[in-house]
Nucleic acid binder design. Structure first.
Lengths: 240, 240
DNA sequence: TTATGTGAATTGCTTCACAGCG
DNA sequence: CGCTGTGAAGCAATTCACATAA
């Protein structure tokens, strides 16, 4: 376990645990446990403890976890205790829905620029931001720091728009288009460009979710075992 | 490998392969191979062949795959060769964006009902559909078949809205709310209700994607090895 | 006595090497 | 001879049991 191999799934689960802690805090619950978190997150208590152990020791043996403390630690681990300046590429219906989605402004995620190529959209004002032309992204990034780019263009333009973001120096891309972003300038050339080596891409894919749902609704027997561990049973059970 | 254990990840990849095949068909490419698909999907050729093998034998040895045939097979496997009647719960900004998203209408996914509880929204007409009150869902489902429910309500109402869908007999839920749906009536009661046993839930989670992106952008070294296999190397290479 | 933290065992996904077929 | 299909090997992620600390 050499600090290198942390399963991707573990990061997703940390986000879930953080959400649970936020909900508990709103309900003024001050303490929790790996069992409680496990049940709410629909994983095993072993899993919760292992996931947390990748990043430190946040509990008290015999007692469990204190909600505000564990929450603060997860916020730190996930990098949510800093400002994230975000630009949106593509300000059509999807891009506007993203810009207006409440909750994105939590944890200092802030939209600082909106970009599009459609002359009917460029120049419009949305949420107090003037929509700029995508060609101006590069100069924009030089005037102020940008950490992340959200990609909300039609799928056929996603690769080019991603390239624009990366060429401008942006290292984190949240791709909403139903397509795979290739870590290279052109879909054809097969060597991954240096600038791409530092880029993280995460996908948010509505259509893929829809199709997976179709499959599992049609084949419920192939669903991942559902009743995944909740409460940690005592290994005992026999009469003493 | 008893037809029971097909990794969830394999299903996600099938969706990706299908997309690639659609793009190839648009470009009038008629043949492909596990190597070609692997490169485009950013997985190994072994993975492509194994994923396809879970469901059948779709290629020709020595030749590869014919695009229209493999596409047709994947459409069938994923259950996309039938009609899917969908209702949307929650017709605020997010629900409307979903209703208007192009591409959802592919493969016979069709919105047949829109539901909300907000009196300002109920009664409005969106995409030719009158928004009904969520209380009318149950009777609505009795008048016409509904296969899937898309959940686009605020997170604090997601559990109750999911329960409404499931009680109405809907077995597939696509959850857009940033919360975990518990397979039970109330978040408190811990026994999973019978009606939930047949329900599939898939999540589409924008905020979670954003937070994972924050983490990996801050910790690029922890990213999943990125340069995952593309071209299958010949095991040879030595002089004979 | 309780519930965490963690090396060890296990499961299951991915990778591999090659048999099978066109 | 090329590329698929697939049992077996390898490896990574999860599960487990228990030592540890409050």
């Amino acid at each position: 376990m050499s600090s290198q191999d942390i399963p991707t799934a573990a990061i997703s689960r940390l986000v879930t645990y953080l959400r649970i802690l936020e909900a508990l805090e709103l309900q003024d619950v001050s303490r929790t446990s790996s069992n409680d978190l496990a049940e709410r997150a629909q994983v095993t208590a072993f899993q919760v403890r292992k996931d947390l152990a990748y990043f430190g020791r946040f509990g008290t043996r015999g007692m469990g976890y204190t909600v505000p403390l564990l929450k603060r630690e997860l916020v730190r681990v996930l990098g949510l205790n800093r400002t994230w300046n975000v630009v949106i590429m593509g300000v059509g219906r999807l891009g506007q829905a993203i810009a207006n989605y409440p909750g994105a402004s939590d944890y200092q995620f802030g939209y600082v620029g909106l970009f599009d190529v459609n002359p009917e959209i460029v120049g419009q004002e949305i949420r107090g931001l003037r929509v700029r032309h995508a060609d101006d992204l590069s100069s924009f990034v030089r005037t102020q720091p940008v950490d992340l780019g959200f990609l909300a263009v039609p799928p056929e333009h996603a690769q080019a728009a991603a390239q624009t973001l990366v060429s401008a120096g942006i290292r984190g891309v949240l791709n909403f288009a139903p397509t795979i972003i290739q870590p290279r300038t052109h879909p054809g050339s097969s060597n991954p460009t240096d600038e791409w080596k530092q880029v993280s891409v995460e996908n948010v894919d509505f259509l893929a979710g829809m199709k997976r749902l179709a499959f599992y609704t049609l084949n419920p027997s192939l669903r991942p075992s559902e009743l995944n561990g909740t409460v940690e049973l005592k290994p005992d059970g026999g009469l003493s």
